[in-house]
Structure formats: C-alpha cells, structure tokens
C-alpha cells in the first residue's frame, strides 16, 4: 500500500511538529492538549485510511461487445472481507476511466456493486490485472493507494477488454447505401428451407409464403422470408500496407469494420483481407467477432505477401487509406472503392 501525504497533510504535519516542540518547550498543558488533538487527528488519519483499504476484493465486468466511441456500462463489484465497513473509496481503472468509480461504503462481508457508463475512445485491447483502490478517508491528510486484483473478471484473473473499431453509419457517411437494392434482394427470398424472418405481405408474394399463425395474431398478412441457400459473398480488402498517417489509417480500419458488421448483419458470407491476416469466408456473429478482433489490434503496416484470388460472385469492397496502394489491380474488379481520406 502506498501512502502519500497530500498538500494539506504536509502542512498539517509541519504544524504538528511546531506545536509539539512549542508544547515541550513551554510545558504549557493547554498547548499539550491542542498538540494531542492534532496528533490524534493525524494518527486516525493514518490508521483509518490504512484499515479502510484492507481486505477488499474487486471484480469488474464490462458489457461486451464494445466499439470505440460507444459508451458502455461497466460493473464493479467490491467485496469487503473485513469485520467493519469501508468508506469513501475510489477505484481507478487505468485507461478506462479517468475519475474512477466512487463507492461511499462497503459493508462488512457484503458485495457492493456499482455501475457506470464509460466511453471507450480508441480501439484496442485493454488488459487489466489490478484496479487501483484509493482513499483519503477520513480526512484529507493522506492518500492511500493499493492494487486490488480483479480476481473475478470476465476472462479469468486478467480483465481483457477488446474494443472494436468505431462503427460508422455508412449510409450517412457516403450518402448512398453500400449494398444496392438488388444486392439486398439477393439476400432473402420467399422460397427456401431455412426461415430467416417474417415481414409484411407485398404484392407478388406467393400465398405459400404466408405465415398463417402470425397473420392471425396480428390481423395482417405476414410472409416468411427464407435464407438463400448460397448467400452472396462479400470481401473486404483493407490495404494497411502503406498507410503512415494514423488518422487515415484509423478511418480505414473503422470503415472496414463497419462494412463487415453490416454485411454480416445482412447474412452475407464475409471475409476480411488485410496485409497482416486474411480470413476465409464465413457468416454469423462468431465469425464477425474474430474479424473484428483482428481489426481491433491491427497496428503496423505490413506489405501484402499475397492477395487471395477473388471469386466471380463475390462483392468486393476495397478500403484504401489513400490513393497510394499496391492493390491497384483490384480497383476495376471492386464493387466499390473507399478512400479513408475522403471520410
């Protein structure tokens, strides 16, 4: 445990020494009385602050997934294993919150929980083994700090929070939908085997597609939508080989993540190709998180060793930080080329 005297504490200590010496010198018992009171305040400040932080066990839970720029709720649980209450404690979570989380009191034997919305500014992996527990209770003379292991975190003894790249509202950014109506239409159809969702009846829909149960329930004609047997494939190629400008690079990463997110949400079979790593086609959220994990930590530019071959039916999105690229040969093939510097 680290004990740091505050500015007030240093001055008080100086005053205590002066009054102590004066009392000793004069032998004035009333001065001794004042000195004793000051000494009592000083000692209580030390002892109470020290005991206040003893035997606290902390656990942190974060509501995942987390995207940069989004505020998410974090839940801090504190267990007091002493026989007396701890008061006025601040938990500093380095890199997550600047002010920390403040708990007024933690009764003995109990678990006290506190939640707070926290804004994660940057993508990346936040690893925490400890929370810094801090208090200056009961007075303002000392600041006590100690590391409290996050023993019951979400991922074992070390809390590992992956913050995915910032998601962009692509349609708002680019003014048009990334996926055309035709592309969207190709995604779902009213015939097939695997039911994806229900929607309102549109003229032209086959009567066999009507879902009678929900129609009866809603009083409106509802039809079943089926997933296409072979979903369309989307490839997002992010050229991170040359970009040296951080801002443009971050935008490119965000844009790639947003494209992947939207495509997976729409049921496409998606893959991501970067100079560091290339993913095979896949669908579903698990596949998306794997790709986003990669984008969350994507850092230094590395040259492309080889670009996997493109297929006929796939929709290719090319994300380039700027106009300099080794992937110029893919531009004619791409459905759309995004320049991060334009965002």
């Amino acid at each position: 445990m680290r004990i740091e005297p505050t500015r007030e504490g240093k001055r008080f200590l100086l005053a205590l020494l002066v009054v102590g010496f004066t009392s000793l010198n004069t032998g004035n018992n009333l001065m001794y009385l004042t000195f004793s009171m000051m000494a009592a305040l000083f000692v209580i400040s030390l002892v109470a602050g020290f005991l206040n932080l003893k035997s606290l066990q902390t656990a942190l839970q974060v509501d995942e997934p987390i995207f940069a720029g989004q505020s998410k709720e974090i839940l801090l649980s504190v267990k007091n294993r002493k026989w007396f209450t701890s008061y006025s404690i601040r938990f500093l979570l380095e890199g997550i919150t600047r002010e920390g989380l403040y708990i007024a009191k933690v009764p003995p034997g109990n678990v006290t929980r506190i939640n707070q919305r926290v804004l994660f500014q940057k993508r990346g992996v936040y690893e925490m083994r400890y929370a810094i527990v801090q208090t200056s209770f009961p007075f303002i003379f000392f600041r006590f700090r100690q590391k409290a292991p996050l023993s019951a975190g979400t991922r074992g003894t070390t809390l590992r929070v992956v913050v995915y790249p910032r998601l962009l509202d692509i349609e708002r950014v680019f003014g048009t939908a990334i996926l055309t109506e035709e592309q969207r239409g190709r995604l779902l159809q009213t015939e097939g085997e695997e039911v994806h969702s229900l929607r309102q009846y549109r003229p032209g829909d086959h009567w066999r597609a009507i879902h009678w149960k929900s129609t009866a329930k809603r009083g409106d004609l509802m039809v079943k939508e089926f997933v296409v047997d072979e979903p369309e494939r989307v490839t997002v190629v992010l050229d991170n080989s040359l970009c040296k400008e951080e801002e443009a690079f971050e935008k490119a990463v965000s844009l790639s993540a947003s494209l992947l997110y939207e495509a997976v949400q729409r049921g496409y079979s998606v893959r991501l190709i970067t100079s560091s790593k290339a993913f095979p086609f896949g669908s579903g959220m698990e596949h998306l998180w794997r790709m986003l994990d990669c984008l969350a930590v994507l850092r230094s530019p590395r040259p492309f060793e080889a670009v996997p071959p493109m297929e006929e039916r796939e929709i290719l999105f090319l994300v380039l930080p700027d106009e300099k690229t080794f992937l110029g040969h893919l531009i004619p093939r791409a459905e759309r080329v995004f320049y991060a510097s334009d965002i």
Binding site: N25, G27, F35, S36, A40, I44
Partner: peptide, 20 residues
C-alpha cells in the same frame, strides 16, 4: 476516537521540567 486519543496522547506525551 479523537477525544479518546487526545486524552491518551495528553497523558502520555513526555513533559520537560524546563524550557528548551
């Protein structure tokens, strides 16, 4: 506790017979 400790410190702080 402050009152109690004040009393204890008052009683236990050493006294000198003369001034320094």
């Amino acid at each position: 506790i402050v009152v109690l400790l004040t009393a204890i410190f008052f009683v236990s702080t050493p006294r000198l017979r003369g001034s320094l």
